[in-house]
Amino acid sequence: MTHSTQEWNDVPGAVLSARDIRVTLSGKLILDGVDLDVAPGEFVGLIGANGAGKTTLLRSLLGVLKPTSGTVERPRRDARTGGVGYLPQKVALDVDAPLRARDVVALGLDGGRPGIPLHRRATRKRVDETLDAVNALSFAEQRIGEMSGGQQQRVLLAHALISDPALLLLDEPLANLDPASAYDIVTLLDRLRRTHRVAIVITAHDMNLLLPVMDRIVYLAGGRAVTGSPEAVVRSDVLTRLYGRPIRVIRAEGRVMVIADDAGIPDEVHHELPAEVAGASGSSGLSGSSGGGL
């Protein structure tokens, strides 16, 4: 069902190659056959509304979520490359955790190794360099939990970057940032993929900040995806076909707005617990699928 623009498929030497990803969670079809190839140094945006399956796709690409069907080939971790770097959407950090930015970044390098770390000068230098690369050197000694959201984002980015990954998967890194910090991060990412040849796959519900740097867009809706250059995808006719209902794309003053013509269906009001609160319900399949009740 994927309407991918042909020229982008089968990129030679792709760092990531996903085929026909299908994911069903709690009886609900979240992804319905998504293909994706990413070349080194490429900047790919996964765009879609809340609930479109962006995080699910990203977690499938990372390998922490096993798709119901489909295959993913991703870079392996070996002596030369750090494999896949990942920045989750929400990292709940304890304000009082006794960890400095520097400690968090060092864990990105050797967090999986046994034994007590005895960091040599070379390691410390590498940590400094990575912190510098994300403009975080000035708060390297601060507690990670006491930093602002933008600062934390940069430190966690350094954590993901220090192992020299071939691919970075970033889940909504701009969601909780003010426009200036978000612009900073985007500029930074754009620089990194040029200097380090790292491929970047980033999710966002607002594509505007990413438009200047994205090589390719994967637009998700209803479990399906349209892939192509931003100009080819973000068009009224393409998105209308994807959503299966009238969608208008408006461009004004260099910004893009995607509007559903029949928007405004009010949320149903009911006193139900969000799934995470009802976490006691374990696998939660029972209630999640039937929409509440027995």
């Binding site: 990942y86 920045l87 950090l93 304890d94 955790a97 960890l99 864990l107 999986g112 990954p165």
Partner: peptide
């Protein structure tokens, strides 16, 4: 501290 990021290490 970073359970979500641990698998990638």
């Amino acid at each position: 501290v970073l359970p979500e990021m641990a698998p990638s290490r």
